[in-house]
């Protein structure tokens, strides 16, 4: 793997930023400072960072209801993210979206989306735009195992395959659609198998191995840029937390299963790897990095808290583009 130590440390920093951002968002949600709900991505960080680190700045992604990780991995500003969660006018959506609707079109992040499978056809349209433009841009759809049973997944893969759109479909198979196990709702053990039905490459990767995710994405992006069409990458991973942070959210997943996945933590795995590589990361450096990240997240919270709530009169702005 030809990823420089600096880039590997940067990947680690992004993964840990996602985790610390969400730990804070969850705590502030419980404290009542963040409204609605928060869906945590913790445990799945290697997927977002592994994929996005293999993309170019101009490439586009679309996210899901569990979107913070994708935002951060694509380069979103956590001040504006936290301000959006806090419902402030300085947030990415001026306080109109909240956790489930953060977008930053300027960095190719076409939005988190509250409808499972809702973003797949939207980003496929971005892939069509990329093909029409012909500048080698690639578009990436993140979605879960649950979404792979929904119509938009199948319609979009068919069209993208038929038209050889420069698409990468990344299934984050965290084994559970809320409380329904993938084993009972998928017709095949691996979502990637479904690629065969559309005549496109489908691969299963260890979603907690950031290098495996990065490499698979790099290969898929090269195929897409070469005009060879879409790929489906299935990343097997696991969410550590309940479906949402809502106090009423039930979690029926077996404790042994959760424990087993905690042992496969993607961040610890990368830390171990870096520490083992001729001192590319010392204990001290890792502690310092984590401390810096915690401080950075804390600054984002300060930024959010110092920002004003939107003027109620702004509720009628932006229904239509002027």
């Amino acid at each position: 793997m030809d990823i420089s130590p600096e880039r590997q440390r940067e990947m680690l920093r992004l993964m840990q930023t996602i985790r610390r951002f969400e730990e804070r968002a969850s705590a502030d949600y419980v404290a009542g400072d963040i409204y609605g709900t928060v869906h945590c991505y913790i445990g799945e960080e290697a997927v977002a960072v592994g994929v996005c680190s293999a993309l170019e700045q101009e490439d586009q992604i679309i996210s899901t209801h569990r979107g913070h990780g994708h935002c951060i991995a694509k380069g979103a500003d956590i001040d504006r993210m936290m301000a959006e969660l806090y419902g402030r006018e300085t947030g990415y959506c001026k306080g109109k979206g909240g956790s489930m609707h953060i977008a930053d079109f300027s960095i190719g992040m076409l939005g988190a989306n509250g409808i499972v499978a809702g973003g797949i056809s939207i980003i496929t349209g971005a892939g069509l735009a990329a093909q029409l433009e012909g500048k080698g841009r690639v578009a990436v759809s993140f979605f879960g195992d649950g979404a792979s049973g929904a119509g938009p997944f199948h319609e979009s893969l068919n069209i993208a395959a038929a038209w050889k759109l420069p698409m990468i479909y990344v299934c984050e198979n965290n084994l559970w659609a809320v409380n329904t196990p993938a084993s009972s709702s998928l017709s095949v053990p691996d979502v990637a198998t479904r690629a065969a039905g559309y005549g496109i490459p489908g691969m299963v990767v260890d979603g907690n191995d950031i290098f495996a995710v990065h490499q698979a994405t790099r290969e898929a992006a090269a195929r897409a840029r070469a005009g060879e069409g879409p790929s489906l990458i299935e990343c097997k991973t696991y969410r550590y937390r309940r479906h949402t942070e809502r106090p009423t959210q039930v979690d029926i997943r077996p404790a042994e299963e959760i424990d087993a996945w905690l042992q496969k933590d993607p961040i610890e795995r990368l830390v171990r790897h870096l520490k083992g590589q001729q001192g590319q990361l010392t204990d001290e450096e890792w502690e310092r990095m984590d401390r810096e990240i915690l401080e950075r997240v804390s600054l984002a919270v300060d930024y959010a808290r110092a920002s004003a709530f939107p003027d109620p009169a702004r509720a009628t702005d932006d229904v239509f583009a002027a």
Partner: peptide, 12 residues
Amino acid sequence: ALTGMAIGAAGS
């Protein structure tokens, strides 16, 4: 799919 693709293309 067409209806959604229009949204992504328009946003691009």
